[in-house]
Design a protein around this nucleic acid. Structure first.
Lengths: 218, 218
DNA sequence: CCCTTTACTGACTCGCGGGTCATAATAGGA
DNA sequence: TCCTATTATGACCCGCGAGTCAGTAAAGGG
């Protein structure tokens, strides 16, 4: 009867690969380093993965799929809020949820930031996903009369996704978890004032007052 | 008497290197390809540059120096505007000038976007320069009572630099020159509304009306 | 023209690291 | 315990590309 594979081997390899790719990037990461870290041989690596590129793709693509699942688009959300005050709360809660996910996966995010050459499509895919998601939400809020019409959805999406992406970068480069809730509250305030109609701007002002009271901040 | 060097050899090598790095990134770019493109031999390359990394650094660092010179900080500008209307005009003009420079150097910007491994410091330097520059301007406008106090300068700087960086990325990935003036006008409008005090917001509204009239846009 | 010094050439060297494969080890069933 | 099929090992292979260097070319002066 055949010897059975160690059920933990593949998982250890994936974990080690993630860590080494995050630290070194794809090019400088070596199979030797990954396998040593996982406590396995180089030969064993090729029993589980076809190539260096194959494991790289698996690490990153599974993250992108989970990321995709986390960033819902408007037609994937049930019971969309209508009231401006609820819209503001909804957006903040969603931002916090996405950034919690990104914080938990900050190693892979660091990998993505450093994709080069033929793998730059992965980084591009991630950023395009963010931009596209932003654009869909922007168009919904425009349709509901909550966002201004004179800024094109493309430009607005680029500004939003660029800004939030930079916040993500700032978050993952911090030595320990920063006050991301507060960052997101401020960011939301800036963009609601910048892109929102007066109705929505009033709602953000009230939302912030409520947050301050609940945190005991004068 | 010694043979003199071809004065154009080094320049051709730098030009070719820039093009190949922009297309392939540092890792996949080969000396053979750079020299063939420049019409020289591999051996000649090493008469002018110590290594592949040396020429890479020269290409990128000279761009960063020129970039630094283009993005003036507040203490480098004479006759700073005081009137809100003039502030808005000044900021727009400066944005346009910086983005014209970035458009002219879009190949090197593409190189920077793909820095990996031990060269990621170059990309980091570029982005930190942008963020730091934003922060200085933000703090000036805050001091003049034109920007709101409740958004921290760090967060505001991250949002601004991230957003403008994404606009730069969107610009350089366009097949031909996009309407960057219009993009920058919209971006400025969003951020003045998002970060500015009412005084400044009124100024942006008037600035936009004036722009529309001068362009014949209803 | 010859001489000298340097630029230039391109075949070659050599180290690196992804991937291979002969051999050893082991899990599970009889 | 033995047998079988598979896992696992790590020395080795081999292609790639940065960099080298013996030989050639050429600029400029005498």
């Amino acid at each position: 009867m055949a010897r059975t594979a160690d059920p933990r081997a593949k998982i250890e390899l994936l974990r080690s690969a993630e860590a080494v790719f995050a630290q070194k990037g794809l090019t400088a990461a070596r199979i030797e380093e990954i396998t040593k870290r996982a406590g396995l041989s180089k030969g064993a690596f090729y029993l589980h993965f076809e190539s260096k590129e194959a494991i790289f793709r698996q690490v990153v693509e599974s993250f992108l799929a989970r990321c995709r699942a986390c960033m819902l688009s408007p037609d994937e959300v049930e019971n969309l809020p209508g009231d401006p005050a609820e819209v503001v709360q909804f957006c903040h809660a969603r931002d916090v949820e996405v950034y919690e996910f990104l914080w938990q996966n900050r190693a892979i995010l660091a990998i993505l930031q450093a994709c080069e050459g033929e793998h730059v499509y992965l980084m591009r895919a991630f950023r395009d996903e963010m931009t596209s998601n932003c654009r869909m939400w922007i168009e919904l809020w425009k349709k509901k009369g909550l966002f201004r019409d004179d800024v094109s959805s493309d430009v607005a999406a680029a500004l939003l996704s660029g800004a939030y992406h930079e916040l993500a970068g700032k978050m993952i480069s911090a030595p320990k978890r920063p006050p991301i809730d507060e960052w997101l509250r401020q960011a939301l305030s800036v963009f609601v004032d910048g892109l929102g109609t007066p109705t929505l701007s009033h709602a953000i002002a009230r939302f912030q007052n409520r947050l301050r009271v609940s945190k005991g901040i004068g």
